[in-house]
């Protein structure tokens, strides 16, 4: 018994010492690059040879994993090019809507390319680069119970939203009386909507449009194609990571000359949307045409 106690005390001591030294050494690393920044600068990423990019894994056709286990989609197409021009390899990190900001703030990824809508609130937490896509909100519903307005809402019906999206923020702020059914991933929200959990699903209009088109045979229709203001989608980096953001801005500008995002659209989105939406969705060279 006494031996056991001694053993336990000893192992505790060892663990604690190890813990303290580990913490100590990591903060040493931090202090070498002025202060305690969690992000990696452009040079540090290049030196490391791998860039960590946060993308969606379940948001077809923007960021998803195909049947071979490879990341695909509009955002991923851009991410591939970004890494190629930077001369590094990509490590994709799968994110959910609600933890995109967290991932940047804790330095788990260098860039978020997960269909991230620019908003004022978010801009206080992370730094956005120039936009590469247009977006606004949309609401999809069943053909036989089409929702065309959110006014005079029947309180027994709920709307599906994904936690951490602009749709959630918008409805919470502007329609506080509509009951929201919240999910934490695209996959589960989609599944629940198909199961008939709610009468409508509010999300980025690109996403609900894609859903309605992909499931046209099941009778879904986008009753509200544009809700609220028109926003843009842009890459985001950790607050203060100017070297990386400036590089991305420069890259987006250069890519504009070769109409890169049009090619991206045709490669990844045209199958879903056709070519009708190309000019309204794509933003080239970081500049929105008003």
């Amino acid at each position: 018994m006494k031996n056991l106690k001694k053993f336990l005390a000893l192992s505790l001591a060892v663990v604690l010492t190890a813990g303290v030294t580990a913490c100590g050494s990591s903060s040493d690393n931090g202090s070498q690059k002025s202060g305690k920044e969690v992000y990696r600068t452009l040079d540090e990423i290049k030196e490391d040879g791998t860039i960590n990019i946060g993308v969606f894994s379940d948001k077809n056709p923007f960021g998803y994993v195909d049947e071979n286990g490879d990341y695909q989609g509009y955002d991923v197409y851009f991410a591939e090019r970004l890494a190629k021009d930077m001369g590094v390899k990509v490590n994709y990190v799968s994110t959910e809507a609600a933890n995109r900001i967290e991932y940047l703030q804790t330095g788990k990824v260098d860039v978020i390319l997960a269909n991230f809508t620019v908003t004022e609130e978010r801009a206080e937490e992370v730094d956005f680069a120039d936009p590469y896509m247009n977006v606004s909100l949309g609401v999809v519903s069943k053909e036989d119970n089409e929702i065309t307005t959110l006014d005079d809402w029947n309180k027994d019906d709920s709307v599906i939203v994904i936690s951490g999206t602009t749709a959630e923020t918008y409805l919470t702020k502007n329609y506080p009386d509509i009951p929201l059914q919240k999910f934490d991933s695209y996959a589960t929200a989609k599944e629940a909507f198909e199961n008939g959990t709610s009468v409508a699903w509010a999300n980025d209009n690109t996403e609900v449009l894609a859903f309605a088109l992909q499931n046209a045979d099941k009778g879904y229709v986008v009753g509200i194609p544009e809700l609220g203001s028109s926003d843009s989608i842009a890459p985001a980096v950790t607050k203060g990571n100017d070297t990386l953001r400036d590089w991305i801005n420069e890259e987006i500008k250069t890519l504009g000359e070769e109409q890169f995002f049009h090619a991206d659209y045709e490669a990844t989105l045209a199958d879903t949307y056709g070519l009708d939406y190309e000019d309204s969705l794509v933003v080239e060279g970081g500049k929105k045409s008003e």
Binding site: A98, N99, I101, R122, E125, S163, G164, E168, D184
Partner: peptide
């Protein structure tokens, strides 16, 4: 969920 939701809405981790 409440905690995750509030983080997603207001970023007050």
């Amino acid at each position: 969920f409440t905690a995750k939701d509030l983080i997603g809405l207001y970023y007050k981790t």
